[in-house]
Design a protein around this nucleic acid. Sequence first.
DNA 1: ATGAAAGCGCTAACAA
DNA 2: TTGTTAGCGCTTTCAT
Lengths: 347, 347
Amino acid sequence: MSRVLNSPQIVSPETAERVRKAIEQLGYRPNLFAQGLMTRKSRVLGIALPDIHGEFYSELLRGADAEARKLRYHLLVGSEARAGAGGGGGQSETGNGGGHGTGGGVGAGPGGPSTAEEGSLAHAFGLVDGLAVMITEPNERLWRAAVSSSLPVVVLDAEVDHPSVDSVMVDNAVGTREAVEHLLSSVPPGQLYFVGGPAENYDTKRRAETFAEVLRGTGAVIRPDQIVYGQYSVEWGYAWAAENLRGGKLNGAGILTGNDEIALGILQAAQDADVEVPGQLKIVGFDDTRLASLVRPSLSTVRVPLAEVGAAAIDALVRRVEDPTRPSTKTRLATNLIVRESSGWAR
Amino acid sequence: MSRVLNSPQIVSPETAERVRKAIEQLGYRPNLFAQGLMTRKSRVLGIALPDIHGEFYSELLRGADAEARKLRYHLLVGSEARAGAGGGGGQSETGNGGGHGTGGGVGAGPGGPSTAEEGSLAHAFGLVDGLAVMITEPNERLWRAAVSSSLPVVVLDAEVDHPSVDSVMVDNAVGTREAVEHLLSSVPPGQLYFVGGPAENYDTKRRAETFAEVLRGTGAVIRPDQIVYGQYSVEWGYAWAAENLRGGKLNGAGILTGNDEIALGILQAAQDADVEVPGQLKIVGFDDTRLASLVRPSLSTVRVPLAEVGAAAIDALVRRVEDPTRPSTKTRLATNLIVRESSGWAR
DNA sequence: ATGAAAGCGCTAACAA
DNA sequence: TTGTTAGCGCTTTCAT
């Protein structure tokens, strides 16, 4: 009987024992499909990321997975990478063009349109109890699919204002501010640069804004070349630096980048051009991926609690799954500057 | 009607159209639980890794995910990390002790014993069509769970000899041989070292064996200190090198490591001790993770086609799911040496 | 406290 | 070609 497993307290001890023994004997396993058919629950959560690869998403996923396991849920992953036409920006390391990415990843909710090639989690929609979806840049389709879904949804990264959708974001401002002020302590405002990822990327955008804000706070006027956009890739960082290192333009400069990869590219270009870091050029990355602490000189960077972001998303999602009436929450996790060799210490 | 969706060819065009319109109108979505209850299929595959974190597993997972999507399946991930008592060795980057890891990760098949804290995928067993499980070191429980499962199973990394279990492995021998011979071209046999990961780890073991074999092929007698085991971590590599760099013992030596992380640790120790790489010390890593090409000097390494391994696993699994009678296959993917700066070129 | 039966939404087999 | 029905294995309700 299912009573033994689900409500052990209302069944007599001896019956329970008898049943339990039979279960053991027969190697009985409840059929999860039948169970799901009745209860409408699977204890499986979907997580849709722009990409699955690299330190960034790997760490996020790890945090999400750990939290899910703690709450006794499972994770069904779905990366949008290579899904639709032109992948999204995200923090992809491959640095493949900056297409505005209409790429799917989540099917439309009931009532919405649905094509055969809807995208990653469309098919699995019906199997999961909820969905965590990361939206790193404007993506109308993904967005509408997310908010109009009948499933509990938590959105990562994008600004959300929907009564039934939870969101988890990173507070870029604090860390960015710390980083810029840190750089300003040894570099004049006119020598400070922000080398970002894709201009559409929400995080890059916010970081650039705070960068500009802090700089303007010093009374400085910002030149257009001080804030530039590209890709979240080593190659972009290297290319930008190689270009701008010429003529000693960057001598004595300070650079904040959109992520650690870009910073590493710049670091390598500097090394190849025999420019001393941090002596002649100071660099601060973003995210604090493992890379940052492993390269030499080690990379100063703004730490983003990636694992916590993943965990918070799962946490919010599970809460909502288990209590759908609960008001939506916005979680915002702090960032903070970590000073290492590339921006400060003498070696 | 379900006939329209499942066997469109046996239904008249106008009926099909009528039904399709109704489906659209009502926003109808087939219930996957009911569907699964009948068909016993979910198009979801479980993948159990020792850990989910770091370049190594990230890349493997990415390959698996890409292949799954191509075959129109979904991936349910389950890392064993922190599952049972003492995590397994695997290629975890955290370098937490080398416990022999009885850690669960997969529940026992029907008939087997099952405790409440069975591990990661136990609960989801009933939802997936098949299971890819990576076994990186002897683990009786995981092993028995895998082979005795009623589900289609493909084992990664471990040697398997079971008629119904497919396996995907890496052919460590070729790459290792290439690496050792490459090092032998500039370093005498007595100056060659293999600094491995955990001694129990299958890959490390095989690599050590081939290392020894090639060395013996030169007629040399191998000292015990030439082959050592530790963790798959930067810290272990650094510690070993820091220890052995003293007294110039490693001057003119060549080192092959169990993975890139260890190699990086050694590289850093060498740099901190002002030992020139590759001038005074040559280093070859293993895996060819992104790390290897990003550090300076760039790391020579034996490339392991991680993404292909993941893809091959999913491929084999899907084949078996869709044809359970098919004989089991063993896939073995080649490795090959990639020479970069740390073992060869002058900078 | 326990047995019996309805029904979740689908597919497959059987009628028409 | 199409309509009808049994039944997948569970949970839940209703009788007992």
